[in-house]
Protein backbone atom coordinates (compact mmCIF):
# COMPACT_ATOMS: atom_id res chain seq x y z
CA UNK A 1 0.00 0.00 0.00
CA UNK A 2 2.80 2.40 0.87
CA UNK A 3 4.27 1.51 -2.51
CA UNK A 4 1.31 2.77 -4.45
CA UNK A 5 1.16 5.90 -2.29
CA UNK A 6 4.80 6.70 -3.09
CA UNK A 7 4.13 6.03 -6.77
CA UNK A 8 1.84 9.05 -6.88
CA UNK A 9 4.44 11.39 -5.34
CA UNK A 10 7.48 11.32 -7.69
CA UNK A 11 8.27 13.36 -10.77
CA UNK A 12 5.42 14.58 -12.98
CA UNK A 13 6.72 12.70 -16.02
CA UNK A 14 6.70 9.42 -14.23
CA UNK A 15 3.22 10.08 -12.88
CA UNK A 16 1.79 10.85 -16.31
CA UNK A 17 3.25 7.70 -17.78
CA UNK A 18 1.86 5.57 -15.01
CA UNK A 19 -1.61 7.16 -15.12
CA UNK A 20 -1.92 6.86 -18.86
CA UNK A 21 -1.06 3.21 -18.62
CA UNK A 22 -3.75 2.78 -16.01
CA UNK A 23 -6.27 4.75 -17.96
CA UNK A 24 -5.51 2.57 -20.94
CA UNK A 25 -6.26 -0.56 -18.95
CA UNK A 26 -9.33 1.16 -17.56
CA UNK A 27 -10.61 1.90 -21.03
CA UNK A 28 -9.90 -1.61 -22.16
CA UNK A 29 -11.72 -2.93 -19.11
CA UNK A 30 -14.66 -0.66 -19.88
CA UNK A 31 -14.68 -1.85 -23.46
CA UNK A 32 -14.57 -5.48 -22.45
CA UNK A 33 -17.21 -5.06 -19.78
CA UNK A 34 -19.73 -3.04 -21.78
CA UNK A 35 -21.27 -5.90 -23.78
CA UNK A 36 -22.11 -7.77 -20.58
CA UNK A 37 -23.38 -4.63 -18.93
CA UNK A 38 -25.47 -3.66 -21.92
CA UNK A 39 -27.05 -7.09 -21.99
CA UNK A 40 -27.72 -6.90 -18.24
CA UNK A 41 -29.20 -3.44 -18.58
CA UNK A 42 -31.33 -4.53 -21.51
CA UNK A 43 -32.80 -7.60 -19.86
CA UNK A 44 -32.92 -6.38 -16.25
CA UNK A 45 -32.43 -2.63 -16.03
CA UNK A 46 -34.62 -1.55 -18.91
CA UNK A 47 -37.71 -3.61 -17.98
CA UNK A 48 -37.57 -2.35 -14.40
CA UNK A 49 -37.18 1.29 -15.40
CA UNK A 50 -39.78 0.91 -18.14
CA UNK A 51 -42.27 -0.63 -15.70
CA UNK A 52 -41.64 2.17 -13.21
CA UNK A 53 -42.24 4.74 -15.93
CA UNK A 54 -45.33 2.92 -17.19
CA UNK A 55 -46.82 2.92 -13.68
CA UNK A 56 -46.98 6.74 -13.83
CA UNK A 57 -49.01 6.81 -17.03
CA UNK A 58 -52.47 5.84 -18.12
CA UNK A 59 -53.63 5.18 -21.67
CA UNK A 60 -56.60 4.22 -23.78
CA UNK A 61 -59.19 4.58 -21.03
CA UNK A 62 -61.36 7.31 -22.53
CA UNK A 63 -63.72 7.11 -25.45
CA UNK A 64 -64.66 9.95 -27.82
CA UNK A 65 -68.13 10.83 -29.08
CA UNK A 66 -67.89 8.40 -32.02
CA UNK A 67 -67.08 5.50 -29.74
CA UNK A 68 -63.38 5.36 -30.50
CA UNK A 69 -60.71 5.02 -27.86
CA UNK A 70 -58.65 8.19 -27.52
CA UNK A 71 -55.05 7.30 -28.27
CA UNK A 72 -51.92 8.36 -26.48
CA UNK A 73 -50.87 8.06 -22.88
CA UNK A 74 -51.28 10.62 -20.18
CA UNK A 75 -48.99 11.33 -17.21
CA UNK A 76 -50.92 10.84 -13.97
CA UNK A 77 -48.14 10.90 -11.38
CA UNK A 78 -48.80 8.56 -8.50
CA UNK A 79 -52.54 8.28 -9.22
CA UNK A 80 -52.24 4.64 -10.22
CA UNK A 81 -50.69 3.85 -6.86
CA UNK A 82 -53.22 5.96 -4.96
CA UNK A 83 -56.04 4.12 -6.76
CA UNK A 84 -54.69 0.77 -5.60
CA UNK A 85 -54.99 1.74 -1.94
CA UNK A 86 -58.40 3.40 -2.07
CA UNK A 87 -61.85 1.94 -1.54
CA UNK A 88 -62.82 -1.44 -2.96
CA UNK A 89 -59.55 -1.79 -4.86
CA UNK A 90 -57.72 -1.24 -1.59
CA UNK A 91 -59.56 -4.11 0.08
CA UNK A 92 -58.78 -6.30 -2.88
CA UNK A 93 -55.11 -5.32 -2.78
CA UNK A 94 -54.73 -6.05 0.93
CA UNK A 95 -56.54 -9.35 0.51
CA UNK A 96 -54.14 -10.28 -2.28
CA UNK A 97 -51.21 -9.07 -0.18
CA UNK A 98 -52.37 -11.25 2.70
CA UNK A 99 -52.88 -14.28 0.42
CA UNK A 100 -49.45 -13.84 -1.14
CA UNK A 101 -47.80 -13.65 2.28
CA UNK A 102 -49.84 -16.53 3.66
CA UNK A 103 -49.00 -18.79 0.72
CA UNK A 104 -45.33 -17.88 1.00
CA UNK A 105 -45.03 -18.59 4.72
CA UNK A 106 -47.11 -21.77 4.73
CA UNK A 107 -45.76 -23.28 1.54
CA UNK A 108 -42.11 -22.52 2.24
CA UNK A 109 -42.29 -23.93 5.78
CA UNK A 110 -43.97 -27.13 4.57
CA UNK A 111 -41.63 -27.45 1.63
CA UNK A 112 -38.55 -26.95 3.79
CA UNK A 113 -39.56 -29.66 6.25
CA UNK A 114 -40.55 -32.09 3.51
CA UNK A 115 -37.55 -31.13 1.38
CA UNK A 116 -35.11 -31.92 4.18
CA UNK A 117 -36.84 -35.24 4.79
CA UNK A 118 -36.66 -36.06 1.09
CA UNK A 119 -32.98 -35.14 0.99
CA UNK A 120 -32.24 -37.41 3.96
CA UNK A 121 -34.01 -40.27 2.22
CA UNK A 122 -32.28 -39.64 -1.08
CA UNK A 123 -28.92 -39.42 0.72
CA UNK A 124 -29.23 -42.81 2.42
CA UNK A 125 -27.51 -45.68 0.67
CA UNK A 126 -29.99 -48.44 -0.02
CA UNK A 127 -31.16 -50.64 -2.85
CA UNK A 128 -33.21 -48.83 -5.45
CA UNK A 129 -31.91 -45.40 -4.39
CA UNK A 130 -31.75 -44.24 -7.99
CA UNK A 131 -35.45 -44.96 -8.48
CA UNK A 132 -36.42 -43.15 -5.29
CA UNK A 133 -34.31 -40.15 -6.27
CA UNK A 134 -35.82 -40.00 -9.73
CA UNK A 135 -39.38 -40.37 -8.50
CA UNK A 136 -38.95 -37.65 -5.88
CA UNK A 137 -37.68 -35.28 -8.55
CA UNK A 138 -40.46 -35.94 -11.07
CA UNK A 139 -42.85 -33.26 -9.71
CA UNK A 140 -40.13 -30.61 -10.00
CA UNK A 141 -39.62 -31.54 -13.65
CA UNK A 142 -43.27 -30.96 -14.54
CA UNK A 143 -44.14 -27.42 -15.72
CA UNK A 144 -46.23 -25.56 -13.15
CA UNK A 145 -49.17 -25.03 -15.47
CA UNK A 146 -49.29 -28.71 -16.31
CA UNK A 147 -49.17 -29.67 -12.65
CA UNK A 148 -51.94 -27.12 -11.99
CA UNK A 149 -54.12 -28.81 -14.62
CA UNK A 150 -53.24 -32.17 -13.16
CA UNK A 151 -54.35 -31.12 -9.69
CA UNK A 152 -57.41 -29.43 -11.10
CA UNK A 153 -58.39 -32.80 -12.49
CA UNK A 154 -57.79 -34.41 -9.09
CA UNK A 155 -59.76 -31.76 -7.22
CA UNK A 156 -62.81 -31.76 -9.49
CA UNK A 157 -66.22 -32.34 -7.95
CA UNK A 158 -66.17 -35.91 -9.29
CA UNK A 159 -62.38 -36.18 -9.01
CA UNK A 160 -60.02 -38.55 -7.29
CA UNK A 161 -59.56 -36.40 -4.18
CA UNK A 162 -63.24 -36.62 -3.27
CA UNK A 163 -63.34 -40.29 -4.18
CA UNK A 164 -60.39 -41.18 -1.95
CA UNK A 165 -61.51 -39.01 0.95
CA UNK A 166 -65.10 -40.08 0.58
CA UNK A 167 -66.16 -36.42 0.67
CA UNK A 168 -68.17 -34.06 -1.51
CA UNK A 169 -65.91 -31.03 -1.16
CA UNK A 170 -66.10 -28.50 -4.00
CA UNK A 171 -62.41 -27.64 -4.02
CA UNK A 172 -62.47 -24.81 -6.53
CA UNK A 173 -65.07 -22.77 -4.64
CA UNK A 174 -64.12 -19.86 -2.40
CA UNK A 175 -62.95 -20.76 1.08
CA UNK A 176 -60.36 -22.80 2.93
CA UNK A 177 -60.63 -25.71 0.49
CA UNK A 178 -59.29 -23.75 -2.48
CA UNK A 179 -56.45 -22.37 -0.34
CA UNK A 180 -55.61 -25.88 0.79
CA UNK A 181 -55.64 -27.22 -2.75
CA UNK A 182 -53.12 -24.58 -3.84
CA UNK A 183 -50.87 -25.29 -0.85
CA UNK A 184 -50.95 -29.03 -1.53
CA UNK A 185 -50.18 -28.60 -5.21
CA UNK A 186 -47.38 -26.10 -4.57
CA UNK A 187 -45.77 -28.24 -1.87
CA UNK A 188 -46.00 -31.31 -4.05
CA UNK A 189 -44.28 -29.53 -6.87
CA UNK A 190 -41.50 -27.64 -5.13
CA UNK A 191 -40.51 -29.64 -2.05
CA UNK A 192 -38.25 -31.70 -4.37
CA UNK A 193 -36.43 -28.48 -5.32
CA UNK A 194 -35.43 -27.88 -1.70
CA UNK A 195 -34.69 -31.59 -1.39
CA UNK A 196 -32.34 -31.40 -4.36
CA UNK A 197 -30.35 -28.44 -3.04
CA UNK A 198 -30.19 -29.89 0.48
CA UNK A 199 -29.03 -33.20 -0.98
CA UNK A 200 -26.18 -31.37 -2.68
CA UNK A 201 -25.34 -29.83 0.71
CA UNK A 202 -25.50 -33.21 2.46
CA UNK A 203 -23.06 -34.74 0.03
CA UNK A 204 -20.38 -32.22 0.99
CA UNK A 205 -20.47 -33.26 4.68
CA UNK A 206 -17.56 -35.63 5.32
CA UNK A 207 -18.35 -38.99 6.89
CA UNK A 208 -15.66 -38.46 9.51
CA UNK A 209 -17.78 -35.90 11.30
CA UNK A 210 -20.57 -38.41 11.73
CA UNK A 211 -18.13 -41.09 12.81
CA UNK A 212 -16.77 -38.76 15.47
CA UNK A 213 -20.28 -38.06 16.69
CA UNK A 214 -20.95 -41.77 16.87
CA UNK A 215 -17.78 -42.34 18.89
CA UNK A 216 -18.86 -39.57 21.25
CA UNK A 217 -22.20 -41.32 21.67
CA UNK A 218 -24.41 -38.58 20.19
CA UNK A 219 -28.07 -39.47 19.64
CA UNK A 220 -29.42 -39.38 16.06
CA UNK A 221 -31.43 -36.24 16.89
CA UNK A 222 -28.38 -34.49 18.30
CA UNK A 223 -26.37 -35.54 15.25
CA UNK A 224 -29.05 -34.02 13.07
CA UNK A 225 -29.39 -30.72 14.94
CA UNK A 226 -25.71 -30.23 15.76
CA UNK A 227 -24.02 -31.57 12.64
CA UNK A 228 -26.31 -32.02 9.69
CA UNK A 229 -28.35 -28.82 10.01
CA UNK A 230 -25.48 -26.38 10.64
CA UNK A 231 -23.39 -27.88 7.85
CA UNK A 232 -26.24 -27.94 5.39
CA UNK A 233 -27.40 -24.46 6.38
CA UNK A 234 -25.71 -22.47 3.58
CA UNK A 235 -27.30 -24.63 0.89
CA UNK A 236 -30.62 -24.72 2.71
CA UNK A 237 -30.78 -20.95 3.11
CA UNK A 238 -30.19 -20.37 -0.57
CA UNK A 239 -32.90 -22.92 -1.40
CA UNK A 240 -35.35 -21.29 1.00
CA UNK A 241 -34.56 -17.82 -0.31
CA UNK A 242 -35.22 -18.97 -3.87
CA UNK A 243 -38.50 -20.52 -2.80
CA UNK A 244 -39.58 -17.39 -0.94
CA UNK A 245 -38.87 -15.18 -3.94
CA UNK A 246 -40.66 -17.67 -6.17
CA UNK A 247 -43.72 -18.10 -4.00
CA UNK A 248 -44.14 -14.35 -3.57
CA UNK A 249 -44.72 -14.28 -7.32
CA UNK A 250 -47.12 -17.25 -7.24
CA UNK A 251 -49.49 -17.04 -10.20
CA UNK A 252 -50.06 -20.15 -12.30
CA UNK A 253 -51.24 -22.48 -9.54
CA UNK A 254 -54.08 -20.37 -8.10
CA UNK A 255 -54.98 -18.99 -11.54
CA UNK A 256 -55.25 -22.33 -13.31
CA UNK A 257 -56.18 -24.61 -10.42
CA UNK A 258 -58.85 -22.43 -8.82
CA UNK A 259 -59.48 -19.72 -11.38
CA UNK A 260 -59.36 -15.94 -11.73
CA UNK A 261 -61.36 -13.52 -9.57
CA UNK A 262 -61.54 -15.88 -6.61
CA UNK A 263 -60.81 -13.77 -3.54
CA UNK A 264 -59.61 -16.72 -1.44
CA UNK A 265 -56.55 -17.35 -3.60
CA UNK A 266 -56.04 -14.05 -5.41
CA UNK A 267 -52.39 -13.00 -5.26
CA UNK A 268 -50.54 -9.82 -6.22
CA UNK A 269 -49.29 -11.34 -9.48
CA UNK A 270 -52.85 -12.24 -10.45
CA UNK A 271 -53.99 -8.66 -9.83
CA UNK A 272 -51.20 -7.33 -12.05
CA UNK A 273 -52.08 -9.87 -14.75
CA UNK A 274 -55.80 -9.11 -14.67
CA UNK A 275 -55.14 -5.38 -15.03
CA UNK A 276 -52.81 -5.85 -17.99
CA UNK A 277 -55.32 -8.27 -19.53
CA UNK A 278 -57.77 -5.35 -19.63
CA UNK A 279 -55.11 -3.25 -21.38
CA UNK A 280 -54.66 -1.07 -18.30
CA UNK A 281 -50.89 -1.21 -18.41
CA UNK A 282 -50.36 1.71 -16.01
CA UNK A 283 -52.22 0.20 -13.05
CA UNK A 284 -50.79 -3.22 -13.92
CA UNK A 285 -47.28 -1.78 -13.77
CA UNK A 286 -48.15 -0.15 -10.44
CA UNK A 287 -49.18 -3.53 -8.99
CA UNK A 288 -46.04 -5.14 -10.40
CA UNK A 289 -43.91 -2.36 -8.91
CA UNK A 290 -45.44 -2.84 -5.47
CA UNK A 291 -44.86 -6.58 -5.70
CA UNK A 292 -41.28 -5.93 -6.82
CA UNK A 293 -40.65 -3.65 -3.83
CA UNK A 294 -42.19 -6.20 -1.48
CA UNK A 295 -39.93 -8.93 -2.83
CA UNK A 296 -36.87 -6.69 -2.57
CA UNK A 297 -37.65 -5.91 1.08
CA UNK A 298 -38.29 -9.55 1.96
CA UNK A 299 -35.11 -10.70 0.21
CA UNK A 300 -33.07 -7.98 1.92
CA UNK A 301 -34.42 -8.81 5.37
CA UNK A 302 -33.90 -12.52 4.79
CA UNK A 303 -30.29 -12.10 3.69
CA UNK A 304 -29.52 -9.67 6.53
CA UNK A 305 -31.23 -11.67 9.26
CA UNK A 306 -30.13 -15.16 8.35
CA UNK A 307 -26.98 -14.27 6.49
CA UNK A 308 -27.75 -16.41 3.49
CA UNK A 309 -24.54 -16.67 1.51
CA UNK A 310 -26.07 -15.83 -1.83
CA UNK A 311 -23.28 -13.86 -3.44
CA UNK A 312 -20.35 -15.42 -1.64
CA UNK A 313 -19.90 -12.56 0.82
CA UNK A 314 -19.16 -14.86 3.72
CA UNK A 315 -16.10 -16.22 2.01
CA UNK A 316 -14.66 -12.74 1.69
CA UNK A 317 -15.64 -11.75 5.20
CA UNK A 318 -14.20 -14.80 6.93
CA UNK A 319 -10.47 -14.12 6.66
CA UNK A 320 -11.06 -10.67 8.12
CA UNK A 321 -12.70 -12.14 11.19
CA UNK A 322 -9.96 -14.67 11.80
CA UNK A 323 -7.37 -11.93 11.43
CA UNK A 324 -9.22 -9.89 14.04
CA UNK A 325 -9.17 -12.85 16.38
CA UNK A 326 -5.46 -13.27 15.95
CA UNK A 327 -4.95 -9.60 16.67
CA UNK A 328 -6.92 -9.82 19.89
Amino acid sequence: MSESASAVEPTPGKKVRRTSFNEGTGRLAALLLSPTLIVLLLVIGYPIISALRESLYISGQRIDADGFVIEGSQFVGLDNFAAIFSGETGDRFWNAFYNTTFFTVTCVVLETVLGILMAMVMHKAFKGRAIVRASILVPWAIPTVVSALLWKWIFQADGIANEVLGTQILWSTEGWQSVLSVIIADTWKTAPFIGLLVLAGLQTIPDEVYEAAKVDGASPWKTFTRITLPLVKPALLVAVLFRILDTLRIFDLPYVLVGPNKASVETLSILAFLESNQNRYGPAAAYATLLFLYIVVVAYVFVKLLGADVIGEARVAKPKKSRGKVGA
Binding site: S4, V8, T25, G26, R27, A29, A30, L33
Partner: peptide, 15 residues
Protein backbone atom coordinates in the same frame (compact mmCIF):
# COMPACT_ATOMS: atom_id res chain seq x y z
CA UNK B 1 -3.05 -1.79 -6.11
CA UNK B 2 -5.69 0.49 -4.76
CA UNK B 3 -4.83 2.99 -7.46
CA UNK B 4 -5.60 0.49 -10.15
CA UNK B 5 -8.75 -0.60 -8.48
CA UNK B 6 -10.23 2.88 -8.40
CA UNK B 7 -9.58 2.98 -12.12
CA UNK B 8 -11.45 -0.24 -12.64
CA UNK B 9 -14.35 1.27 -10.79
CA UNK B 10 -14.21 4.31 -12.96
CA UNK B 11 -14.22 2.04 -15.98
CA UNK B 12 -17.24 0.20 -14.72
CA UNK B 13 -19.03 3.46 -14.04
CA UNK B 14 -18.14 4.66 -17.52
CA UNK B 15 -19.48 1.48 -19.06
Amino acid sequence: MRFERSHTRKAVALA
